[in-house]
């Protein structure tokens, strides 16, 4: 059901019945210590390249999700996913290991929100179940956007660290027997560009998009920010979170006290990870490893997850283009 220009509420119930996640050792030593299902022993994880390691990471997450849900591949109607590597190779290559129809998506680090929004729409249209999986890997992202790993460069004060991790969720129209989070609304993001050109300051580039999507979501659903127990953005980092809070205050959107960011939640303060985590795996990992458990355990009832993405490439930055941002909002509630 269309609630507004950007926001929809599924007419059928869309449950997030199971989650699975996997992360690198740095991520597993951070604030999510003890919450993560499976941890990589090293970046290459027994593979010839980091790209293959990311592919394997996704395969393991999806396989573990199917095991948890006690489903075979043919029981799942659709798999949606994306990552940050050129031509979303890890997503496509991991999909060849499964007998599940695949739809590859790309909205940089906002892909997790995009995937849940599309899957919810598909379930509303009658498909039975869908898997959404996004991932990122520190080493593949460094190569994609920055410099060789061993190059002795110094990070700028506004830089963030790409999360090594993958999170997969199973969306289904069938009501499970336990307390299960539901997708109750989703808001498609607009591409917002306020002219930021610093590729090492993604938080600043994405904060206006996060603000735009959150305010559209609240306006179109008629909800107040404090309707949600938590509003969690994807990977704005500490600076982006601060800028978002300032934008909300300025534009008169009543600021939720429970505004947080997956990028700020993932690493512990002493981990030298700049202003926080980033990457397509950041929001999916934090949701699967932590936020989903809070919802199931009843510690929170209403979550607005807002994965954020910076739609740049290394070449677009070199050509002097500014960095457009996008954010998707997904309302996940236990009713």
């Amino acid at each position: 059901m269309k609630l507004g220009r950007q926001t929809y509420a599924p007419e059928k119930c869309v449950y997030i019945s199971h989650v699975a996640d996997i992360a690198g050792s740095d991520e597993a030593c951070g604030n999510l210590r003890g919450y993560i299902d499976q941890v990589l022993d090293c970046g290459e994880w027994g593979c010839d390249s980091h790209e293959k390691a990311e592919t394997r990471m996704r395969e393991e997450a999806i396989r573990s999700l199917l095991e948890k849900a006690e489903l075979s591949e043919c029981d799942v109607d659709l798999m949606l996913g994306g990552d940050l590597v050129n031509q979303i190779v890890p997503s496509a290559f991991s999909a060849r290991s499964f007998d599940i129809p695949f739809s590859g998506l790309y909205c940089a680090c906002a892909t997790f929100g995009q995937a849940i929004a599309h899957a919810s729409m598909a379930i509303d249209e009658g498909i039975g179940s869908a898997i959404c999986c996004t991932s990122s890997h520190f080493a593949t992202a460094e190569r994609q956007y920055r410099f060789p790993l061993e190059l002795g460069t110094q990070p700028t004060p506004t830089s963030q660290r790409t999360v090594t991790g993958a999170g997969a969720v199973l969306l289904t129209g069938k009501a499970p027997l336990w307390r299960c989070p539901e997708v109750t609304a989703y808001t498609f993001g607009r591409v917002i560009d306020l002219g930021c050109t610093d590729a090492n300051n993604m938080g600043a580039a994405m904060a206006p998009a996060a603000f735009d999507t959150i305010s559209a979501h609240l306006r179109e659903t008629g909800r107040k920010a404090d309707y949600y127990d938590l509003i969690v953005t994807g990977d704005l980092g500490r600076l982006g979170r601060e800028l978002l809070a300032q934008l909300m205050k300025r534009e008169g959107v009543n600021e939720s006290k429970n505004l947080n960011d997956c990028g700020c939640m993932i690493f512990a303060p002493g981990q030298k990870c700049g202003l926080g985590g980033s990457g397509a795996g950041c929001s999916s990992l934090v949701y699967c490893a932590y936020l989903h458990k809070l919802l199931v355990a009843g510690q929170i009832d209403r979550l607005l997850l807002v994965p954020t993405g910076a739609l740049l490439s290394k070449d677009s930055s070199l050509q002097g283009e500014s960095i457009p941002g996008i954010a998707y909002a997904v309302a996940i509630e236990c009713r």
């Binding site: 506004t158 306020l194 002219g195 930021c196 600043a204 206006p208 600076l239 800028l243 300032q246």
Partner: peptide
């Protein structure tokens, strides 16, 4: 929505 120049100033001040 905030203008580009104003936002750039906000980013500069908060960074």
């Amino acid at each position: 929505m905030i203008g580009e120049k104003e936002y750039a100033a906000l980013v500069k001040q908060a960074s």
